[in-house]
Every structure is written in C-alpha cells, then in structure tokens.
C-alpha cells in the first residue's frame, strides 16, 4: 500500500526527481518555476500540449523532458 502523498520517483531531463503523489505535469512545471515560460513538455516520448498539463497526472517512473529554445545553426 502506498501512503498518500508519498513521493514518487520520476526521471526529469535525464536525472532522478522526486515529487509527491497525485501531482500533475502543471504542478511539476510550477515547482520548477517555469509556469508561463516558453517551454515544451514530453512524457514518455509523447508531447503533452500546454492545454493538457493540468490534466496530466504523473506516475512512478515517468520519463519527462522539459525543453526550451537556445542558440543554434
């Protein structure tokens, strides 16, 4: 039995990251201080559109990528 609000382990941009159970992708972005920034989010190799971050629950072992624009040729 998992305890309510016990942390779950994600992989965020290739690194381990713990977050409380029941959190959404939007909660994660808020925790990272990135709400409203120009970013894109992918979970388990699927794009999560901005409009669906709120409705996307995070699960143990999710592989999450948060990306932004940088200089390139």
């Amino acid at each position: 039995m998992s305890t309510p609000n016990a942390p779950i382990e994600l992989r965020l941009n290739g690194e381990p990251y713990a977050i409380n159970q029941g959190q959404t992708a939007a909660d994660l972005i808020a925790q990272l201080g990135l709400t409203g920034r120009r970013i894109a989010v992918e979970i388990n190799e699927q794009i999560v559109p901005k409009s669906q971050l709120d409705a996307t629950a995070l699960n143990e072992g999710d592989q999450i990528e948060v990306v932004h624009a940088i200089g390139g040729g």
Binding site: N13, V67, A69, G73
Partner: peptide, 29 residues
Amino acid sequence: TFAVRRTNLGQDADAPNLLDVIPPSRYTL
C-alpha cells in the same frame, strides 16, 4: 534557426531567453 535543448533546472527562471531577442512575432523561427 535555433535549437531545442533541455531546460537547465534550478537556473534563474528570469535569465534571458533566446525567444526574447528573436521574437516569433518578428521572425519566422
């Protein structure tokens, strides 16, 4: 042109962003 890379987590979120100097409203990215 620009590149897509992992956001540096824990970095100052107010650091200048490329899209502030190359705004999509002015350029075709």
